[in-house]
Nucleic acid binder design. Structure first.
Length: 571
RNA sequence: GCGCCCGUAGCUCAGCUGGAUAGAGCAACGGUUUCCUAAAUCGUAGGUCAGAGGUUCGAAUCCUCUCGGGCGUACCA
């Protein structure tokens, strides 16, 4: 709790029949500066005091004492409004930002705790398409937010590298893929991700005509699970091809993982997991499959073993959760996966609960809406996709064109264009709340004006430019009472809320809270910038404003980093 | 059918655990660059917060129903 709110609580405690904690909960920020810096609404205590809220606030305004920190108390209707010492306020906040610099916003909230975050997790043997972006970008941001709050974070890419789909691919590869008879080794077939992708699409097309192919595919997956050598070798090769492609894209996006333990990783542990469920008396055979009946909980059964005894994704997810608890002893296990899988998570979370794992309450499915075309859902199966790499490339190209038009002299144009092009894509993914479905629109995603990543990056670059031209570096030693403008106060108020913003974003696993905050901060700064000069003759005021500008720069930089965007100093 | 999610300006979205006049951006129209990067900024216009009830001193926010849209609903992930 900051010293200003603490002070207000202390003052109020004397006259108000509420605990300090309760009072703090009621304190809010007035809608504009004239109404003060903090407010206490008197509705809640009206009943207890048997008096009208407006009267109570008027009386309190008379009674309560002011001091060095709280310099004014005024009643406006039912609200009791507090005015803090601007000098104190500027001094406290600007000092914090200055001394903490790159770690401003950090806290020890998550100290000693571990957050495991499962994100991206694409199915291999297919291109990364634009609808794969959401999990990766949102998960990466959630990872960074938690890290900033002091959590030990483990980012896991739970690769979809197991399952019936690999049976399908093997079938397709054997039927329509390059011939291996003459070349011996599968590595010499010249297969690449494009061809793999085509095989996948072709399988689903042909399987519509010829359902027997599905049985053949299930059969091959079963062989794969049982360690059949041909199946293994083919699968391994598919995986290598895919991973090298994925890593290239992740690098462009600046997204990293601590572990690539995908679904196949758990294959050898599956039996133990299933045995535990059996022993707990939770499973039964139904329609030849091994299931956990969840009728009692109004859910379809959770299938552990298909009739051919092969595993399903629920089996592997249960096993993975157990493993992660053993391996990392997490306090939070976050799955960043599309909302269409909600039921699946509810099902296997329920099974974990029935198995007696209390820690299931710290597992959370952080869901997000679908990416759609104007024509409908994007589908890798039907080959209806926009490739992620194409989108990134196009975005960087546009960024480069803009730089050529505006700042052709820029030294590291390519690097900056990539930072902005990629930044635009990432930011647009994070700018609205997760749950919303998004309609993919080239024009919208490639627009660099208004509430966008480039807007935030541009503001940052502009700040850096001012500081460069200033000639001297920002110093902490300024006359805080020289900052008299409302725009200056508004800016520092935003800076104050950075950490609270991160805490709220972590609580709801909602990175858009951070992106909205940054847009707000930038817009506040740009307004200030438009109306007030920084590099002025008055040396003392200039020094004060330079510190203010440097603080804003610092917070924007920290915020962009957390969201996974670069903060170029020139653009 | 049942379950979950969504429905705020022409479009895309904010609106903290209910609170002081519902806010941005895009698109449209009109201003601001001999001045710290105009990827900016200022202004105009645009809203029965899907609809109807209810709870409350007070509802875009909570509850119920209706309508509209999305997703899911046993051997895919």
């Amino acid at each position: 709790m900051d010293i200003f709110i603490k002070n207000i609580v202390d003052i109020l405690k004397v006259e108000v029949p509420l605990s300090g904690e309760e009072i703090e909960g009621f304190i809010e920020i007035p809608p504009d500066l004239e109404k003060g810096d903090y407010a206490f609404p008197c509705f809640a205590i009206a009943k207890q005091l048997r008096n009208a809220p407006a009267k109570i606030s008027a009386e309190l305004a008379q009674k309560l004492p002011t001091g060095d920190i709280i310099t004014g108390i005024k009643a406006i209707g039912p609200y009791l409004n507090f005015y803090v010492s601007r000098k104190m306020f500027f001094k406290t906040i600007l000092n914090d930002v200055f001394t903490e610099s790159d770690s401003y916003g950090c806290s020890d909230l998550g100290k000693g705790k571990t957050a495991v975050i499962d994100y991206s997790s694409p199915n291999i043997a297919k291109h990364l398409a634009v609808h794969h972006l959401r999990s990766a970008v949102i998960g990466n941001a959630i990872h960074n937010i938690h890290k900033t709050l002091g959590y030990r974070c483990v980012g896991i890419n739970h690769l979809g590298d197991w399952g019936t789909q690999f049976g399908q691919l093997i079938v397709a590869f054997k039927r329509w893929g390059p011939d291996t008879k003459d070349q011996g080794s599968i590595q010499e077939t010249g297969l690449d991700i494009n061809k793999l992708n085509k095989l996948y699409v072709q399988f689903h097309k042909e399987a519509k005509e010829n359902p027997a192919l599905e049985d053949e595919a299930r059969d091959w997956f079963k062989k794969l699970e049982n360690g059949n050598e041909e199946a293994r070798e083919t699968w391994q090769y598919f995986k290598e091809i895919s991973l090298s492609e994925f890593e290239r894209v992740y690098e462009k996006l600046g997204i990293t993982f601590d572990s690539y333990a995908g679904e196949s990783f758990y294959n050898d542990m599956l039996d133990d997991t299933v045995d535990r469920i059996k022993e707990a008396g939770l499973s039964e055979i139904s329609e030849e499959a091994l299931i956990v009946n969840l009728e009692e909980y109004d859910m379809p059964p959770c299938i552990l073993r298909k009739k051919d005894d092969a595993s399903l994704y629920a089996t592997r997810d249960i096993c993975a959760a157990e493993y992660r608890k053993r391996e990392y002893d997490f306090d939070k296990l976050i799955y960043v996966v599309g909302s269409e899988q909600k039921l699946h998570f509810n099902q296997f979370f329920k099974v974990l609960e029935l198995m007696g794992y209390e820690w299931v309450s710290s597992c959370e499915h952080v869901d997000f809406g679908l990416v759609k075309f104007k024509g409908g859902k994007m589908s890798t199966r039907e080959g209806k996709v926009i490739l992620l790499e194409d989108l990134l490339e196009e975005s960087c190209k546009i960024a480069m064109e803009i730089i050529e038009g505006k700042n052709a002299e820029l030294e590291n144009k390519e690097e900056v264009a990539n930072a902005i092009g990629i930044g635009a894509i990432i930011f647009s993914e994070l700018s609205s709340k997760r749950v919303k479905d998004v309609l993919f629109d080239w024009d919208e995603i490639l627009n660099f004006d208004g509430e966008t990543g480039p807007y935030v990056q541009y503001t940052h670059a502009r700040l850096c430019s001012v500081l460069r031209k200033c000639g001297e570096t920002a110093t902490n030693d300024i006359g805080h009472d020289l900052l008299k403008e409302d725009d200056e106060l508004l800016l520092v108020k935003k800076l104050e809320f950075f950490q609270l913003t991160l805490i709220r974003a972590a609580k709801s696993c909602e990175p858009s809270i951070v992106s909205k905050y940054l847009l707000d901060l930038c817009s506040t700064f740009n307004r200030f910038y438009q109306h007030h000069r920084i590099l002025i003759d008055d040396a003392e005021l200039k020094k004060a404003r330079v510190l203010l500008v440097d603080s804003v720069r610092q917070v924007i930089k920290n915020g962009l980093g957390i969201l996974g965007l670069k903060a170029p100093e020139r653009m």
